[in-house]
Design a protein around this nucleic acid. Structure first.
Lengths: 151, 151
DNA sequence: ACGACATTGTTGCGTCGTCAACTATTCCCG
DNA sequence: CGGGAATAGTTGACGACGCAACAATGTCGT
């Protein structure tokens, strides 16, 4: 146990700005999606993952991995999305344990409806306030962090 | 309604790296605090806010504002921290509606015990992977975002 | 081929957090 | 001053999510 290297003022400010900015940003995006399209931010992200997958479907585990949440979280989220009519469960051919979550037409339509407003919000709340250099720094820096934190 | 300006590949990657890196980072920090000191990340942050306040106490509303959570969230969190013995409620002299949350000695001790490991984790998970320039970009960029998003 | 072990998805349970409603108090303007 | 509006903190109802346990199925070594 060596001496603790505390954060200096500059690092403190970086840490606080990041934490608080992130919290405000996510809250704002969630509110925008919820009020304009009736989708939560987490549900929106799940729909995006499905829409980008081949056949618009993903194994439950892959959806969990892609969204960095737990298996049970995905189970419940998919049930939620199924009740909304945006996703359906499809049994796996090659693995009888397996389940696919598949985007329905209604789900794709909902996503198409929600996407423009969401993207505009991401621009208005985040990208419009960042220079190209800052965007590059964030991209590279967080990609490196992500690589080291990935399990 | 003009045409939507979708995110280009670079912006997409920035957005994804940021979101996923952040999710992994917060999860990792939460786990570290929880396993090493038995404190959740949110509770840790509340203790920090109190420890930095004059008299180690804060009005409930100020604690809510500082932590960017709802009033009810703070009420429940403070009850939780009170049960743990780390915080006590003190009535306000000048406003009979008011309540202070005050850090106890045990709370200060818990914070002192948890802080070194947490700071080390913040370094190991985040700062060690970022150049000075990237840190500066994040600090400035998020500070600007935060300023625009603040209510 | 077969038994030990791993994996998949779901569920019960507990925790955490928000919104809306409520009481108590304070503020402010006519 | 007095009374409506604003504010403080709490609570109830509810939704989201993680962990651990579980049954069903698949995988692998011998």
């Amino acid at each position: 146990m060596g001496e603790t290297r505390w954060l200096d003022d500059r690092e403190q400010e970086t840490w606080r700005a990041y934490l608080e900015g992130t919290r405000l940003l996510i809250q704002a995006l969630d509110r925008q999606l919820e009020t304009d399209s009736g989708v939560s931010f987490t549900d929106y992200e799940l729909l995006v993952h499905l829409s980008e997958a081949p056949g618009r479907r993903l194994r439950m585990r892959d959806l969990a991995d892609a969204s960095f949440t737990s298996r049970s979280g995905v189970t419940r989220a998919v049930t939620r999305l199924e009740d909304a009519g945006w996703v359906r469960r499809v049994e796996c051919d090659d693995d009888r344990r397996g389940m696919h979550a598949e985007l329905t037409e209604a789900g794709a339509a909902k996503l198409a409806e929600a996407a423009p407003g969401h993207v505009s919000a991401v621009r208005a709340y985040m990208f419009d306030h960042l220079s190209k250099e800052e965007q590059a720094a964030i991209r590279d820096g967080y990609a490196r962090m992500r690589a080291h934190l990935r399990p």
